[in-house]
Design a protein around this nucleic acid. Structure first.
Length: 503
RNA sequence: GGUCCCUUCGUCUAUCGGUUAGGACGCCAGGUUUUCAUCCUGGAAAGAGGAGUUCGAUUCUCCUAGGGACUACCA
């Protein structure tokens, strides 16, 4: 079997969105599963929609996620250039081939004329039934055409489709899809205005020239797949046409429609892998990376949206995904994006990180707050609370009391746990704590518990008031672990402060 | 409107004619705990509707309904 070659071919019209990321991921998994190559091609044939920075953004995103590019933009290779805007001459050659073969023609209709036609005729379509009413080379003599072009009249090249043919697409996910060519229109393949082809032509030419074996793309391309099949045929490449797989779409969690770039942060979660600052509008959109997601979590989460291994395993490393992946197990229906599940994945990956690794990430956040803590100590603290959080950014609210004394005390808890005799009790606790030499968690616990037992005190009354004094709220890890880390003097100070300030 | 694709718990999904329709997220309850969280245990929760094929349909076929995509000199 020939070597598998797949491509991810985004258009640099803005940041990559999460659906595009999944398409890239599935391409990558498929390629690696079969020992093949993953190419990155930039489809910048629409000069009007080009956005500066988008290409770098795409490369950086894939890099962050661990989707490695074997060939193409940012990686080089023997089939370049990999930017379509740099391949003008190549496309022109095939445009001419189609023109010469009578499989395409030049059309001079202006956008205004086309709009007028669409307004005039309901469901107007530029095809075999209407092209005779239009302004194109099929109706003009060669010299007339040349004269128009010489006069600088812009034109487009349209494919000349024959009606009544059933075009069969053998989709690896959907099976056989049959579409009649009569419903297709004479799509524009090339624009003289900028000398660039449209997606359809560029895509087929590049996939062919680059030896692409499998085209794995979003379902939005399914309706134009027959056009692509026909183009392979027109260009004489039917024998080596790649296989197609149209992926189900990622849908909005609520409401209707597919997830789109324009959703930005409106949905309450990022739709981009990395933060994006729009150079035109100045608008900033959040990214998964900046929101504190681990790339492994994003990859794992995305992989399972539309694909499943057929087993009950949910946690997958990239390598495990590669090993388990198959297009047969990609589902056919669109998947609503479930942000909650994404958080759960991040939670799980966070648990897998070492305390030291998390501490060093957390240290950066503390630095911003002007807090510097010994890394070993910080690792201990993180270890105590990490199972409570989904993100490193949530660590602060779980640990702030390790670094600063509470400034207020949770009202409900005060009402419930701070009774008339509590100040006296806390005063006694201070004496007990003050007398402890080895202020380790275990030793402290033994001494305090013995004291409680001997004095026949109420464990809950002591411990809850103790916690309220130190933490300010009814939460947090084991009380003696907290106390050992915070240290004797500070603990005593906090209890004193609580006695003075509560009520 | 037209064409195509799709349809199992709220969500992601398993099931490739015979199952008490399974798992996960989320939700609820109970347990553990000095608190909260974690954790453990349990629970509620699904085959869109209608025909047909079959001894037997969630599974195959058709119709209806619903959802989605496409319908640009955008990709």
């Amino acid at each position: 079997m020939e070597k598998v070659r797949v491509r991810f071919a985004p258009s640099p019209t803005g940041p990559l969105h999460i659906g595009g990321v999944r398409t890239a991921l599935y391409n990558y998994l498929f390629a690696k599963k079969h020992g093949g190559d993953m190419l990155l091609r930039i489809e910048d044939t629409d000069s009007n929609r080009f956005v500066p920075g988008a290409e770098d953004y795409i490369v950086e995103s894939l890099n962050w996620l661990g989707i490695k590019i074997d060939e193409g933009v940012g990686a080089g290779g023997d089939y370049g250039p990999y930017r379509q805007s740099e391949r003008k001459d190549i496309y022109l050659q095939y445009v001419n081939q189609l023109l010469d073969a009578g499989l395409a023609y030049k059309a001079f209709d202006t956008p205004e004329e086309l709009d007028a036609k669409r307004a005039e005729i309901e469901n107007f379509q530029y095809d075999a039934s209407t092209r005779a009413q239009m302004n194109n080379s099929l109706l003009l003599s060669e010299s007339e055409v040349e004269a128009k072009i010489a006069a600088g009249e812009p034109y487009v090249v349209r494919i000349k489709l024959e009606p009544g043919e059933n075009v069969v697409i053998n989709d690896l996910i959907r099976g056989e899809v049959i579409i009649n060519s009569s419903i297709l229109d004479d799509k524009v393949l090339y624009k003289s205005s900028d000398g660039l082809p449209t997606y359809h032509l560029a895509n087929i030419v590049d996939d062919h020239l680059m030896g692409i074996t499998h085209v794995i793309r979003g379902e939005e391309w399914l309706p134009s797949a027959p056009l692509h099949v026909l183009l392979y045929k027109y260009l004489g490449w039917a024998d080596t046409m790649p296989q197609f797989a149209h992926l189900p779409l990622l849908l909005k969690p609520q409401g209707n429609g597919k997830l789109s770039k324009r959703d930005g942060d409106k949905l309450g979660f990022p739709v981009f892998p990395l933060e994006w600052n729009d150079p035109k509008s100045g608008e900033k959109s959040s990214g998964y990376r900046e929101s504190g997601y681990f790339p492994e979590a994003v990859v794992n989460f995305l992989a399972l949206l539309g694909w499943n291994p057929g087993t009950e395993q949910e946690m997958f490393s990239m390598q495990e995904l590669v090993d388990a992946f198959s297009l047969e197990r990609v589902s056919k229906s669109g998947a609503k994006f479930d942000y909650e599940k994404g958080k759960w994945f991040n939670h799980n990956y966070l648990q897998l990180k070492s305390n030291e690794e998390l501490a060093s990430l957390f240290a950066k956040e503390l630095e911003v707050k002007g807090i510097s803590v010994d890394e070993a100590k910080l690792a201990t603290i993180v270890g105590l609370v990490k199972e409570r959080v989904n993100f490193v950014s949530e660590l602060w609210e779980q640990t702030s009391f390790f670094f600063e004394a509470p400034t207020e005390y949770d009202e409900k808890t005060v009402k419930k746990r701070w009774k008339e005799d509590t100040p006296a009790l806390m005063q006694d606790l201070i004496s007990v704590l003050d007398a402890i030499e080895d202020f380790s968690s275990h030793n402290m616990e033994e001494i305090v518990k013995t004291w409680i037992a001997e004095k026949e005190l109420n464990m809950g009354a002591v411990m809850n008031a103790f916690r309220l004094s130190v933490v300010g709220a009814p939460q947090g890890p084991h009380m003696f672990d907290i106390a050992a880390i915070v240290g004797k003097q500070e603990i005593i100070d906090r209890i004193k402060k609580a006695i003075l300030n509560i009520k």
